[in-house]
């Protein structure tokens, strides 16, 4: 027990001594560090100040201002905001149309070319065949030497020349082509409008909760006003069913739908969907 306690005390003393030694060395080191840090910070401060002064010096001097201040010249223009898009669309559609036209034309030309080629081929073959036959006939004739009429069956009906074919094609088909294209365009617009309209119908149907006083054959006609984003801005009652609850249910259905999908094509939107009529006439009620 005792030696152990002695040992511990001795260890403690040595530790204290060691600490004293360490302390004096640390102090010197710390002082050095401190001086170094101080020096560095002073240098940095000077550097910052120097940079500042340097920048100030290089600030641009006030130059003589032009007499005219900068302004935006605004003039009232009756510009449709959709004009640009429309024009672009028109242009692209024109281009597309042109493209399609030329494509069709090219197709037709190619077809005509092929036809002509085929015909030429046919002709050539026929000529060759005829030639062959004639040769054979001639051979037979010469062999037999009986018939005085040596002339064989001539080329029976000559097909029209390729030039003729092309001419005919272009003359008659150019117009047909145009009308066909116009029709196709109309059909797509019509179909597009129908598709959007049926979508609107579906959405309204889903929102339409009819009151129990509703009867088959009741009619409410509403006029719906949309903005190009498809939002409903106004609903007018054009003709009433004489049942307030029924009228209200129809108006509420449109209000609840809140927003419809409308065509991005602003021409189609303006002509068909900016203002449209909605007729509510239930047919599936049990009473």
């Amino acid at each position: 027990m005792l030696p152990a306690g002695k040992g511990r005390r001795a260890k403690a003393r040595r530790f204290v001594m060691n600490a004293g030694v360490l302390k004096s060395g640390d102090l010197r080191q710390g002082l050095l560090n401190y001086v170094a840090a101080l020096g560095l910070s002073i240098v940095l401060h000077f550097a910052v100040v120097a940079v500042l002064f340097y920048n100030w010096k290089h600030q641009p001097e006030i130059a003589a201002v032009d007499a005219d201040p900068y302004y935006i010249g605004a003039t009232t223009v009756t510009e449709n905001p959709h004009r640009a898009r429309e024009q672009l669309q028109l242009q692209t559609s024109e281009q597309r149309r042109e493209q399609r036209l030329s494509q069709i034309r090219a197709e037709r030309a190619a077809a005509a070319e092929a036809e002509a080629l085929r015909r030429e081929e046919n002709e050539r073959r026929m000529v060759a065949e005829n030639e062959e036959r004639r040769k054979q006939l001639a051979a037979i004739q010469s062999q037999l030497e009986s018939s005085p009429q040596a002339e064989p069956v001539q080329r029976m009906d000559t097909p029209a020349s390729t030039a003729d074919i092309r001419q005919g094609l272009e003359g008659s088909d150019e117009q047909a082509l145009m009308t066909e294209l116009a029709e196709r365009q109309a059909v797509t617009d019509d179909e597009k409008a129908k598709a959007y309209a049926s979508q609107i119908k579906r959405e309204v149907e889903q929102m339409w909760s009819r009151p129990p006083s509703a009867r088959n054959g009741m009619e409410v006609l509403l006029q719906v006003h949309l903005v190009p984003t498809g939002e409903v801005v106004d609903v007018h009652l054009l003709s009433s069913s004489d049942n307030d609850a029924f009228d209200r249910s129809a108006i509420q259905a449109v209000r609840k739908a809140d927003r419809f999908q409308v065509p991005a094509d602003s021409q189609l939107f303006e002509s068909t969907f900016r203002v449209f009529e909605l007729l509510f006439r239930p047919e599936d009620l049990r009473l």
Binding site: E205, Q206, W208, R210, A250, F276, E277
Partner: peptide, 12 residues
């Protein structure tokens, strides 16, 4: 050409 859509059904 004003569009008229006819709604004949509802979900009730």
């Amino acid at each position: 050409a004003e569009l008229r859509i006819e709604v004949t059904e509802g979900v009730d």
